[in-house]
Every structure is written in C-alpha cells, then in structure tokens.
Design a protein around this nucleic acid. Sequence first.
RNA 1: GCCCUUGUAGCUCAGCCGGUAGAGCGCGUCCUUGGUAAGGACGAGGUCGGCGGUUCAAGUCCGCUCGAGGGCUCCA
Length: 532
Amino acid sequence: MKSMTPLEEIRHSAAHIMAAAIKRIWPDTKLDIGPPTFNGFYYDIDLDHNLTADDLINIESEMKMIIKENQPFVRIEVDRQEAVTFFKKQNQPYKLERLADIPENEVITYYKNGEFIDLCAGTHVKYTKQVKAFKLLSIAGAYYRGNENNKQLQRIYGTAYPTKQELNQYLELLEEAKKRDHRKLGKDMNIFHIDDSVGQGLILWQPNGSIIRKELQNFISEELTKQGYHEVFTPHIGKLGLYRTSGHFPYYQESQYPPIIEDDVIQMMAAENCSCAQLANRLKEGEIDGYLLKPMNCPMHIKLFDAQPHSYRDLPIRFAEFGTVYRWEQSGELNGLVRVRGLTQDDGHIFCTDNQLGNEIKASIEVVKVVLRTLGILDYRVRIGLRDPDSTKYTGDSVLWNKAENNLRQVAQTLGVDFEEEQGEAAFYGPKIDFVIKDVIGRDWQLGTVQVDYNLPKRFNLNYIGSDNKPHRPVIIHRAPFGSMERFVGLLIEHFGGNFPTWLAPEQVRILPINDNLQCYANNISTLFKKW
RNA sequence: GCCCUUGUAGCUCAGCCGGUAGAGCGCGUCCUUGGUAAGGACGAGGUCGGCGGUUCAAGUCCGCUCGAGGGCUCCA
C-alpha cells in the first residue's frame, strides 16, 4: 500500500468527511470513490436528489460539525466476505464493484470516522480536526468509471489545505487566473470574436488578433524556408472519395461536419422519396458522392505529392500550409480559442525514405522547440502518444505501428528531453510526439505535434523510385509546431497575460498629443511610424 | 452529448415579496485642461437571450429552447 503525502491525506480525509456529511443529510446516498487530486479532492455519489449550489453550503456546515466532533480515523482490516455482507446490507452497489476489483491476495481495509465507514486503502490524517481549511467548489456530472455508457454520478469538487491562509491563497490564485483568461483578454483587447449567428466554435479574428496571427505565421514561415519546405495552398473541401481512401469517412463521421451533397443528387433523392437513413447509407456505401469540409490537410498534400513520379533523389519533399480544417467538436467541449470547430493548422507533411526518417523527425521537433523557446514557453511536457492496443479506432497493421512507435521513441531518446508515453493518445494513422502546456486554470492542451505515418502512404499507394529502379513506399511525417493558430494564440494570451512582446503586440506605439494644436504634428508622426 | 451553474445597455453589475428598467465605466456633442485611467454640462444607447404559459399585470413565477461557464465523455 502506498501512503499519501501529508497534503493528499488532508484532502482525502476531507473527501471522507464530505461523504460522511452527505450520508447524514441523505442517508440513502450511494458512494463511489473520493480521491485527492492535483488541486483538491472530489467524491462521486449516486443520489436521487439533484444537488445544487445551496446544498454545498449545507454539506459544508455538516462537515464543520464532523470536524468539530474531532473523530479519529481508524484503519480496520476486514475479511472479504465480511466486507461483501456489510456493503450489501448498506446497499452500496458501487462499493461492492470496487471491492470486487481488489486482487484476491490484497488486504482489504475500512477507514472509519464516527459512524461513517468507507472501503478505502488510506491513508488519512489522525483526527478530523486536522482538516483545518477546506471549501467545496462545484458540482459536476461524472460517468461511473469514466464510461459514458454507464450511469452519470454526481461529483462534488472541493479543495483543502493545511491552513486557512494557504486555502485563501489558492482561492485568490483562481481569481487572478480568471483575469488572464484568454476569453476575457481576447475580448478586452479586441483579439477575436465568436458570434452566435456565425456559429459555435468558429473564430472571427479582429484586426488586433490578425496582427498577432500574421506575425506568428511570418515567423514560422521563415523557419520553414530555412529548412527546405515548400509552401502550398489547398482548398477547404474535397470529395468524399478522397476521405474514404484516407479513412476519415465514414469512420470518423461523428467528428466532422456532415457531407455537402450536390443539388442534382438531392433533387433525385427527393423524387425517389428517399429517407435520411437511406441517404446516410448510400453515402456510406459510396453509391452517391459529395464533398467534405476537410477535417485534415494531409490527403490534399498527399495528392500534391502523388501528382508526379518521384525519384529517391527528390526526397525528402516537405510541404507546408496554414491549412484550415473543420471538426465537429461536442458542444460541451468548445472553449474560446483553444477548442474550436474551425482551426488553422501550421501544417506540414514530409515525404521521406525510411533512412531519412530519424533526421526528419529530429528536425521537426527542433522547430517546435525553437518556437517554444522564442516565445519563452519553458513550462511544457513532452508526450509520446501510442495506440491503445484494445481499441479498434486505428488503421493499419501492427507491424507498421510497432516500427513507427519504435522510431519515435528512439529519436525522443536522443533529444535530451524528458518525455512520458501514453497509450491511446496516437493519431488514427500513427503515433506522435506532442508538446503539452497548461492554461491558466491548469488544464493540459496539446500544441506542437510530430507524427509518424506508415499507414496513409499505404492507403494512398504512394511510391518513389529507389536507386534499385524499383518502387518503394515513402513515410509521411505530419507536423505542426504551433498546432493550431487558434489554440496557440489563445494560450499565448494567457502565457503573456496580454502583455505581448513588442514584435507580436497589436499596438506598439501610441501617440498622445497634449493639446489640439498638436493634432497635425501627431498625425505626421503617426504616418511616419506606419511607414517605418 | 450528459450533470451543475448562468444570460438585464459596448463592459462590470444592481433591480425586494410580480406593478411596464437603473448605476459606474465606455460612447457622442459642447466647455475646461501642457498630459499619462483628467474635470464639468448635456445626450444617445435596453422588446431584460428567444418562444410559450400563469396573472388584471412578468426582467421577476412556471415550461421549453438557444447561448455561455465549470466538469464528465470525446479530441482521427
């Protein structure tokens, strides 16, 4: 059993006290789990009564009672069968399921404070009075075991600190963070606008935001020219067939805007009294065609590559584009600039040979590091996203996947950066290295990314002619140092708290005439600055 | 999409137990002023997110709906 840090113990104990308080108020509450978190704690409960903010006040005062009672936390080892009987009698189905998860050879323990007994591995503070400073913060829905097919439980978030002073400091920090929120600053500084009548998650860039974005684009374009990229432009829509080949349609249909269907086809289907279900089916089967707002740029770049035959002497070929893509994100997930439905990637695709792969990955990662260093973003983590072996959402065979994953790992090891590997974080066509940073309230966001892809070259049957005069399959690297312009600018606003370095600042100079007689002179100076 | 919260002038907000809207900042005009969030006078600006219901009467109560915030799920 691994024990908790003193702070975790306080928070976890606070969670137990909260559960005990809730049981006092609603005795038939069914409990799930209540762990400490990075910023506090939560407890998931199943309760017929829908909790409201007012309930939190009541729960808090009951918690204060329990703390005042200064109950000891007592660890009790218990026989498995005994525990089963107990939780059955208590009508705690979630505890029974959690109990069943505990391996046979492990000791089962209760923790008891006052009348409240919880299945728990510990650890806790000694007495409830040691929880000196806590606050309940919010109520949220949370699916049991994080699976959306399961029942949604009610989760209460709270936080706790060793002292009142530290708690207040944290609460003030939250207030301060709100002031740096890119949605607030973005509005105050006229950086962007989201308009209901245009659509959720669709960004309108104000002139000030456009300056920032353009400066960033110029900056990265210079870097890419140095590295031998060719800039290209491709359209916003493409035929469904293209995305059938890539695998986007119909397999990722739920995260795309629906297809655009030609008017002739709509008329024809209407004449046949065709139902929506039939329409969907005929689209899926490819009996009728249409267009898709592009969810990714890669198929277009692949077609550019494939427009001519290539010799191994031509490789690597590097295409770059500020390509705008559209994705149907769930409405509850949209968030200012950082999670949107239309985003512009500083996208690029490198077509290279297996031998060139290592150097190209390295160079791609270097660009990401240059970007972060230039902007003073030093607090980031590096994540290697691997496929989830249990999931079916990935394309291609595991031999190619293993090859790609090994390649990425090897390069990462030569970079001198700390990285962690996470399963299930890969793209559907290949593994990736992501650069992840936090926003003002501590949420992780992926920015720059470098992805290795053996699968799309196969799906699109790409070839180059090798020195042996035979066709060979190239590898594709997908990479985006900023990730998306929207998200990057959003996090940049928070990173700088709105105080942009001069080269990015929308307003670099302001001329203040001290009286109206100097208006004309001020105008002249202003014109001079603009020319400059 | 689901849970909780929330929606009054450009912004921040007030508006009691239902009786047909208010402040500060901002904006406009004029006056004043050698200045760094200046002062004064006057003024414009709101079908209280939308639709429906209850009521003699709805910003206020109820239902539905749309948007936003915090989570959960998702994020090729």
